[in-house]
């Protein structure tokens, strides 16, 4: 399945079909990260949210700033 991940085309393996699986696939499940799918925030208790073909996924975090 192909999605757009942080603005870039990204091919997912067959066994990745939820936000949780995507985080694990990207090795981000233990990081501080916020997930948006098609401009909707996916709250932490909803990580079974499905990832579908052509979804626009954003992975967001905190960086240094004033």
């Amino acid at each position: 399945m192909s999605i757009t991940l942080n603005g870039k085309a990204y091919k997912l393996p067959e066994d990745v079909s939820t936000v949780q699986q995507l985080l694990e696939h990207l090795e981000l499940s233990k990081r501080i990260v916020i997930v948006e799918v098609n401009k909707e925030i996916v709250q932490k208790d909803q990580y079974d949210h499905p990832i579908r073909e052509r979804d626009q996924v954003e992975m967001i975090h905190f960086v240094g700033g004033g």
Binding site: L26, L28, I34, I60, H61, F62, G65
Partner: peptide, 12 residues
Amino acid sequence: TFAVRRMNVFEP
């Protein structure tokens, strides 16, 4: 304070 930005997911 912090800023909110896209993660560099390709280099986690």
